[in-house]
């Protein structure tokens, strides 16, 4: 923990150039999106519902193809990275296998990679204790609370030791308290593992608390309208939430976000 990652201090990790995404039904989910993200950044995607945040995330991970333009991750086209270009993906819902217990769920990425259970055990147990669920390795998802399930999902995303963590509104369904706790956990993971994180959220406060940079998007068609660097240093904690610079950043981001709503027809 000697060196804190700051935005812009390292090589470029993700580069999106003039990316369009048009779905089969004609919906233009993303138009002309260009973005460059450096290693070690914590970037939030913020924007109204339907502005293409999830779509952008899926394209970066290679789960969706682009209709136009190009995306590279670590120099490779999205989704075509070699070994060691692992991406951790945390979906909006916990997305656990209901038939498998917590251990099996977290072990899955390693299993798919051909690791035997005995070889993987230590790594799985490490990430489980990292999210504080060591005692629940044998529990089934239905026996966990929503926040615990989310933590299992985060543990699973971390088990391959990815350099890039994509999170799609991971805490949207949680209460404020749990959300705050999990926010701190994510920050701590980011710090200790030298991750790069893209974090999709609806919440101005969450984005300001967490990120080193907020990308504000607008809908119809989905596009980037603001790219706001947040210079406040880390570590961030409860005291940061009380600070004037936090309030200032929230104000800046809020007004940027409000601008995106002006040209949205909510009845549409």
């Amino acid at each position: 923990m000697t060196k804190l990652p700051f935005h812009g201090d390292q090589a470029e990790l993700i580069s999106m150039r003039d990316v369009d995404k048009v779905f089969g039904n004609g919906t233009v989910a993303v138009r002309d999106m260009s973005l460059s993200i450096n290693q070690g950044e914590f970037v939030s995607f913020l924007g109204p519902s339907g502005c293409g945040k999830s779509t952008a995330l899926k394209m970066i991970s290679g789960l969706l193809s682009v209709s136009k333009g190009s995306i590279t991750v670590n120099g490779h086209p999205a989704g075509a990275g070699g070994d060691g270009d692992d991406i951790g993906y945390v979906f909006q819902e916990a997305t656990l296998m209901p038939w498998a217990n917590v251990f099996e769920n977290v072990y899955l990425p390693l299993k798919l990679r051909g690791l035997k259970k005995a070889q993987a055990r230590e790594r799985v147990e490490n990430v489980l204790s990292m999210v504080g669920l060591m005692n629940f390795a044998k529990s089934y998802p239905r026996e966990l609370s929503g926040g615990m399930r989310m933590r299992v999902s985060i543990a699973r995303a971390m088990v391959t030791k990815p350099k890039l963590l994509l999170m799609d509104e991971p805490f949207a369904a949680l209460d404020e308290m749990t959300r705050t706790k999990l926010n701190d956990e994510v920050l701590s993971l980011w710090k200790t593992h030298g991750l790069s994180v893209i974090f999709v959220t609806h919440s101005v406060f969450e984005s300001v608390y967490l990120s080193s940079r907020v990308v504000v998007m607008a809908a119809r068609p989905g596009r980037v309208v603001h790219d706001i660097p947040l210079t406040s240093g880390y570590p961030r904690n409860a005291a940061y939430r009380m600070s004037p610079e936090y309030a200032e950043s929230c104000k800046t981001v809020s007004s940027a976000l409000e601008g995106t709503l002006d040209n949205v027809d909510l009845n549409h």
């Binding site: 899926k58 991970s61 290679g62 789960l63 991406i87 993906y89 979906f91 819902e93 997305t95 296998m97 899955l108 990425p109 299993k111 798919l112 990679r113 391959t160």
Partner: peptide, 21 residues
């Protein structure tokens, strides 16, 4: 579940692994 399918794609599961697991 389609998110689970995505997860299996993300980790490059083989067709057989996808079927089995």
């Amino acid at each position: 579940d389609h998110n689970l399918r995505d997860l299996f794609s993300l980790y490059r599961a083989t067709p057989l692994q996808r079927l089995r697991y």
